[in-house]
Every structure is written in structure tokens, then in C-alpha cells.
Amino acid sequence: MKNYYLSENDFSDFVTRMISTKELIAPIAKGPRFVFSKIKSPSEIRLDYDVTILPPKKEFFPPRQNLVKFSSKGYEGCIDPKEKILFGVHPYDVKGIDITDTVFENNKKDMNYLANRRAATIVASNIQKVSSRAFWDTVGADIKAKGHDAFLTKISDGYHFQTLTTKGDALISCGKFTAATEKQSSEAKKVNESVNGTCPEKLKHSSKDIAKKVRDSFSKKEMWDKMAQRCFSCGTCNIVCPTCYCFDVQDKWNVDQTSGVRTRYWDSCLTEEFSKISLGAGHSENFRESRGSRYRHRIMRKAAYLNETLGGPACIGCGRCSSGCTANIADPVEAINTIMEVK
């Protein structure tokens, strides 16, 4: 771990140099919201963003990802990682990436994700603006963000830049960095600590207590049905979630009608047909037929099911689902706090 300092004036030069070496993905404005996007010029970067529409996992696990290409001559995989710098990732999203890293490493390794992940350098950044539905300071608060290569913090007259890996160290050559003074490092520490406790939404219990109570509430059918009454089964809460990784796989022919691709698409367990199987002769069975059972499955996955595998909840408190849900029912804080109150 090494601490550096970069002056405000040298920042844009640093970004320009990074762009010249690798693809640089950073938060930019999109209408009233923000998105991670490939940038061409330093002025596009908006480190004062609150939260992006989609989490940065899309860089490793894109919404549509080809798995196999086939033609009359044969078939081949589509793993083709590009070196990228993912710049300005908030710590909660770093935790999200850590979670998808774990699930794609687990069981059988999924190189379609991991190859992209390994080709990336992740530069985290301090949170300059807290989003209106965030609760990252009360969910799995004891879990530290890890897996990033460097951490950039805006301090009074420039940036504090901490490198954590050799990939992080490699970025130093892109800018006019000097060793950070102790004062600069302690200011950075203070900046990062000061955001804790500022999230507008709060969970009131520990992850462990939540996991137990939520899991034990499985059979409270009426409660789940009531919670999901306004659910559109639209899948927004899943698709914007940093820790959702379900997908569908479909084959398609190209226009020549002989070659084609097998592609995976982000899928959503809230949509009606996610668990439906065909039994033939027009018959089918849907293992999660009601809105309530699908809503419950999502809350279970976020708060209980994966905790053992991950060492904490599969939720990082970004609030994307809460703000994305037009029926305003997806908010895990509201759901969990309600469940915790139910006797």
C-alpha cells in the first residue's frame, strides 16, 4: 500500500495519459442520472456523481454477452478480454464487484466473467454525493470493500491516491504523483469516514439478525403477498442490482441462416416466467407463480440465502432498486425493517 498525492491541476493530464494507455471507463452524466461509460476526454468524468443507473459489473458481465459463436465450419468460445481501467467506483460498488467475483469463481469458474474482470484495473473513489435512497453504511457495514487496485480521494487541494496492487502501482506513471504527506493521508481518511452515517435510509439490525429473521419469515405468505401487491414483475430491481447475476441463454442464427451465436442476457427472477418449465403438450409448471413468492425470493437472496457463501448479505446498499422501482416497493430497507417488526 502506497499513498500518493496529485494536484487538482495535474488531474486532467493524469486522465488523458490513462486514456492513451487503456480503455477508461468512468462515471459520466446521462440526463439527470449518471452511467459508467468509456470516456474520451477528462472533462466528461463526474466524480461528484451520486450513483450510476447500472452498476459497474456490466463491464465484466455485460447485459448481453456472447458465449459461443457457431458456423458450418465449427464453433468457438467468445472470451476476449480487453484491458480496461474502471475509474471512480464507489466503495459500495467495489463490494458489489467482490460479490460477483465470488459467485463467478464459485462452483465452476466462469471465465466469461473472470477474464474480463482480471483484465480490469479498478480505481475506487470517495463518495462525494450520497444518493437519495442509499443505505450502504448500515448494510453489511463490517464488510470492507476489497478487490480494487487503487483508491482516489478528493481532498482540499487535489487528490489523495492510494495504490493497493501492482495494477494500481502501474497507474502512477500516468500522472505527476508525489508521495502523500501524513496530513494529506489523514485528510483522505477523514473524508472517507465522514460519509459514514450520512445515508438517508437505515437498516436497524445486524446482517446476522436480519438473515435469521428474514429466513424464518418464509412462510408468512400474507405478508409477502401484501408487500408485492403493487409489484409489476418488471424486473427493474434485479436488472439494476450489483449483486444480481441471473441470466437467460438464447441461440440465434445470423442472416446467412447457418452461422449464429449463443448469447446470455441478464435475467430477472421477478419476471413471471423465470422459474416456469414446459411439461409438453401445452402444460407447464411455474415454481414461483405468485408475485409474492417472487418478491420473497429476491429479498431472501439479498438478505439470507447467500450470506454463508459471501460472509455477509448479497446487498451493498446502493439503493438502485429502491429508486428504480416505479411502484416504490423494492426498497430492501423498508422491506427488511417491516419484516423485523413482524411478530
Binding site: K30, V35, I53, L54, K58, P63, R64, F232, S233, C234, G235, T236, I239, V240, Y265, W266, S268, T271, E272, E273, G324
Partner: peptide, 11 residues
């Protein structure tokens, strides 16, 4: 599934 799925995939 609904349009939201495709819309969110498009960010």
C-alpha cells in the same frame, strides 16, 4: 417480460 427489462439493460 416487460419493456423495463430491456430498458434497464440499455441503461
Amino acid at each position: 417480460y416487460p419493456v423495463c427489462v430491456e430498458c434497464k439493460r440499455n441503461e
